[in-house]
Design a protein around this nucleic acid. Structure first.
Length: 437
RNA sequence: CGGGGCGUGGCGCAGCCUGGUAGCGCGCUUGUUUUGGGUACAAGAGGCCGCCGGUUCGAGUCCGGCCGCCCCGACCA
């Protein structure tokens, strides 16, 4: 893509409303623009990041055997009356009336809807287990939206739901998702730590929050530093092997990790002092088991092999897709701007033409652009070198191909790695190889 | 929801106290210049001063109401 033809409006100065670094950088790098408090438009570069994150989430959900569906953003109030949550939910739910004065709402989540769908479609124990998910915009009318997309009112979310015949099945689904989540975060280029979370009235140990470590995190976190070195769901594990899933679950949950809310001083003291780590974390996902809460309340049952009625055991699995965008920036940036992990960067490579209008430089840049295709952003603006450097660093492309007239005359370009800052003079072909590798 | 603050060109801000033709920096346009980390000079374009009402000969400025946005706290993915 050519920068001269793109809507990527970078800003030299920080808009006054943005306080924390990810919000500032998202505005300055031209990823988003605010429309209302906690509601954002995603501009081309931002949309690419969002799409990249969503695609990785989708691929890992599919790999774990979940099926993608798509549910509406607008739901009928009556659905929520069935579970009793219409009255219980409070002012965070955005309630709307249509032209016929019917009560509707902009969904904050979809347990009711999916339970109703299952109720209408699944009658036999033979049809279970099932695991479904959707990636959808949701809305919670936060009292006080802030921190840009980290605490927005409208947000893009992956929500998954499992339906099993019994508790053992629900546990198996839960463990499967734990592995899927660790694989997802690993591919996103961040280290997320599963922390024991509040299970509320359900009880048990089947609720975990996934936190990315970042200085601006909303929660204080305590964890065993083994999480900084162990493999987090590598490919040797198989979803088809329950022993693998159990062992992985055991490994993830036996190490200490908790937010300040669930911090247990006694257990903490059992962690060797040199392994204790304290910091702050941003929650980017949560998984939990909630049993038959909705299947009972909404009358969803299947017939068992002996003719008995079984209310399926359910679990819910969320990942904040739009929130991850901000969270990853919080965890990966420097004074100059964003440092994108390659897997989700809007553009893997930027081509910086330092002498727009110079025939040799132009030709080399065009050729690089053609070979790299859509994964590259070609800065073909008639701007000064300094501006191009600053914008490229701000936007955070993992690689920069810096093409100036001196080098171009010898078919040489400079390759800069955004994260390490390392620069290398290479032939055009070698540069391409390096960037594509 | 309690407490605090702010709305003036695309962005950052001054002007308001003490009413009298709306300003600065950045960005934008054109030209010259410069040419590897936001160059210099010149000439331009661009503003229902958040909205409504009041006071006044006259309101960005004073008064009232409303709307929007931000920060701290409580709350929350």
């Amino acid at each position: 893509m050519r920068l001269s033809r793109s809507l990527i409006p970078t800003l030299k100065e920080t808009p006054a409303e943005a306080q924390i670094v990810s919000h500032r950088l998202m505005l300055r790098a031209g990823l988003i623009r605010q429309q209302s408090a906690g509601i954002y438009a995603w501009l081309p570069a931002g949309q690419r990041v969002l799409r990249n994150i969503a695609n990785i989430v989708r691929e890992e959900q599919d790999r774990a055997g979940a099926q993608e569906i798509l549910m509406p953003t607008i739901q009928a109030a009556d659905l929520w009356r069935e579970s009793g949550r219409y009255d219980a939910y409070g002012p965070e739910m955005l309630r709307i009336r249509d032209r016929h004065d019917r009560e509707m709402l902009y969904g904050p989540t979809n347990e009711e809807m999916l339970t109703a769908i299952m109720r209408d479609s699944v009658q036999s124990y033979r049809d279970l287990p099932q695991m479904l998910y959707h990636i959808q915009w949701k809305f919670r009318d936060e009292v006080r939206p802030r921190f840009g997309v980290l605490r927005g009112r409208e947000f893009l979310m992956k929500d998954g739901y499992s339906f099993d015949l019994d508790y053992a099945g629900a546990v198996a689904s839960y463990r499967r998702m734990l592995l899927a989540y660790m694989r997802t975060f690993r591919r996103l280029g961040v280290r997320a730590i599963p922390m024991r979370a509040d299970t509320g009235p359900i009880g048990g140990d089947l609720s975990h929050e996934f936190h990315i470590l970042a200085p601006n995190g909303e929660s204080g976190v305590f964890y065993d530093n083994a999480f900084e070195t162990i493999g987090l769901g590598d490919d040797t594990l198989s979803y088809d092997n329950q022993a693998d899933l159990n062992a992985f679950f055991e490994q993830m949950t036996s190490l200490y990790a908790a937010t300040d809310e669930k911090h247990d001083t006694e257990a903490w003291n059992n962690v060797p002092a040199q392994s204790r780590r304290e910091g702050r974390g941003i929650e980017v996902g949560q998984i939990f088991y909630f049993g038959t809460k909705y299947s009972e309340a909404m009358g969803f049952s299947v017939v068992g092999p002996d003719g008995s009625k079984i209310h399926p055991e359910m679990g819910s699995y969320g990942i904040g897709v739009s929130r991850l965008t901000g969270a990853i920036i919080e965890a990966s940036h420097d004074d100059a701007g964003i440092i994108w992990p390659a897997s989700i960067a809007p553009f893997r490579t930027a081509i910086l033409n330092l002498r727009q209008g110079d025939a040799i430089t132009d030709t080399l840049c065009e050729s690089l652009h053609e070979k790299l295709g859509d994964a590259a952003l070609y800065d073909d603006r008639p701007a000064r070198a300094g501006e191009k450097f600053a914008d490229a660093d701000l936007m955070g492309h993992p690689w920069q191909l810096i093409v100036g007239p001196r080098g171009a005359a010898n078919n040489q370009v400079e390759v800069k790695n955004r994260r390490s800052g390392e620069r290398t003079e290479l032939s055009a072909d070698d540069a391409l190889t390096k960037v594509l590798g």
